[in-house]
Amino acid sequence: MKIYNGGKIFIGLLVFAVLAASPFIFNMGKSKTAEKPDIRIDTPEILKLEDKKCVAPREQMRATHMKVLDSWRDAVVRNDDRSPVLVSGRQYDKSLQNGCMKCHSNKEEFCDKCHAYVEVKPTCWECHIEPKEKKS
């Protein structure tokens, strides 16, 4: 089989193959990155709890926690509704710093790990003041 303009076609196909395989090429020899980031829920506040439950089940929180925060933001900032959320007999402030981070006080180990892993940059700390964590 004769290929006409073989040189040019070869260069074109090479560019195609490299581009198409680039996700594989960038992942070569980086086996560790496939591991799930290990987030920590062992803050003193959480350790004090008897039943370690958040406002929603774990799976749901992993996928949709931003929606919860968004609805709280709307309720508090836009509708002036600061009434606490009641979930299975426990009260939670509709607040990032006084609600969520009362228990999850370890921003670096809890928030940042996953956000960095999936390249998400939430805008929380554009308004809120970033908590200063004690380096242990």
């Binding site: 996700p23 594989f24 960038f26 992942n27 070569m28 980086k30 086996s31 990155t33 496939a34 591991e35 799930k36 980031p37 799976e59 992993r62 996928a63 949709t64 931003m66 929606k67 996953c114 892993y117 999936v118 998400v120």
Partner: peptide
């Protein structure tokens, strides 16, 4: 229907580094 992005990325990177996992 939001899904857990961390698990999705674990699956994607597993595929792309030829060490497939189903989180």
């Amino acid at each position: 229907y939001l899904t857990d992005l961390v698990s999705v990325k674990v699956l994607a990177l597993g595929l792309l580094s030829f060490k497939p996992v189903i989180p």
